[in-house]
Design a protein around this nucleic acid. Structure first.
Lengths: 230, 230
DNA sequence: TAGATTGTTAATCGATTAACAATC
DNA sequence: TAGATTGTTAATCGATTAACAATC
């Protein structure tokens, strides 16, 4: 009964809170919470306090409680958080309780690498097709999913319910292709092209700039050298 | 003459400033500045004001000036910034004026995709070898670079000057392998494994968590739906 | 009930933006 | 010189941490 009461009140809070804008900083921490909770769940841990979790994750307990309370009261005073419940709730917040159909544009090395990541499927991301301009890839399949030619793209989009497109193509083609995608109903782009996409504000873009990441690594190496010379 | 004076004073500032801790937020914006300046350079633009750059990049001019002044005065009152000079200087800050030898651990799809990114080479990142446990990959070459077996790793590290290791292996092996890498002189890890690595503080870790990125995308889709229902 | 731990308010810290004097 | 634009200080905004009353 205590748990039901808790859940009900949590749900109420979520509804009340929906208008408030959650900061990007908070959102970017959610997948990490989700990962740690998944690990705890797997090791059979039933409940955890913000304090214990904070030690594992190397963040403050305060931050954990503040972050979670953006979405509702998932814990219980004197008890902590039920791992399974919190895991499920964060999953819902992240939209992992629904399936999302996606396609990959660019079936080169990176596109194929993403296509082979079967673990995305476990989170509800279903790959429906890959597309490429290279005729050599025509008819090739990855995990049973066909690579199609780019001239089939528009037709495919119009006949399938695809939400997300991963863009693993050279930057020179990125703008042109993303325009086609959006004109044909794609609502979110996972952008691996080395460029910024400025798209209508109702289209979601999440970019992974690998070279930016490598440059940050490089910066830190240089800084470290400077530190040592002192 | 004016430029020389400027450069001298900039250098002096950089030296003076080296102790100050630059925030992660600033560092993560540097590769983006570098990218935009590279584009400007290519299109033959010689100088740019913080204001014009701010419009292109959709950030405030104030932020640009603040960010750059963490590292020294690269601009000139009444003139703006010399594109080529600023590009070069940011390159230096990011450590791109030096070469960095690296290896890839895990020659699966993602490892091979990274190996094929020839553009890393242009920024000074030189791939020296890939490693894998899969005997099928023994002797395979990517862009002329050999895949070696994991049992050759220690020997290879001891006989080559390798700074960075990209980790494109399953999370279950990540901790074990990173321990070996660090014991044999690797100073920086570009981590694609779906786990956090807690390593000695003199080892640099830069993680790319693809599934975290996809979850953020998913969150934003859900939010967008909520918004529409209103 | 007493102890534990949350949810939440208040305090602090840091990052961003605004403003403007310095100066090219 | 006058106009433009930086470098930098001050003001604002937002995010993190601390503290503690509420409550399980």
């Amino acid at each position: 009964m205590a748990v039901m009461k808790k859940r009900t009140s949590a749900r109420w809070k979520v509804i009340e809170v929906e208008h408030r804008k959650i900061s990007k900083a908070v959102i970017s921490r959610l997948p990490r919470y989700y990962r740690y909770l998944g690990d705890l769940l797997e090791s059979g841990v039933e409940r955890i306090s913000s304090n214990d979790l904070s030690k594992k994750m190397q963040v403050t307990a305060s931050q954990i409680r503040q972050d979670l309370n953006n979405f509702g009261g998932f814990g219980q005073q004197g008890y902590g958080y039920n791992v399974k419940y919190l895991y499920t709730e964060i999953g819902k917040i992240l939209g992992l309780n629904k399936t999302h159909n996606f396609i990959i544009i660019g079936a080169g090395n990176l596109g194929q690498a993403l296509a082979n990541y079967a673990s995305f499927e476990r989170s509800g991301f279903i790959l429906k097709s890959l597309f490429d301009v290279n005729p050599r890839l025509e008819g090739v399949s990855i995990r049973g999913i066909r690579v199609r030619m780019m001239d089939e793209l528009v037709d495919f989009l119009q006949n399938n319910d695809i939400e997300i497109a991963a863009l693993t193509i050279p930057r020179s083609k990125a703008v042109e292709v993303s325009d086609i995608l959006i004109a044909n109903g794609i609502r979110a782009i996972w952008n691996f092209a080395h460029t910024d996409l400025t798209l209508p504000k109702d289209v979601i873009v999440e970019s992974v700039h690998l070279s930016d990441s490598l440059m940050k690594l490089s910066y830190n190496i240089s800084q470290h050298e400077v530190g040592h010379k002192k």
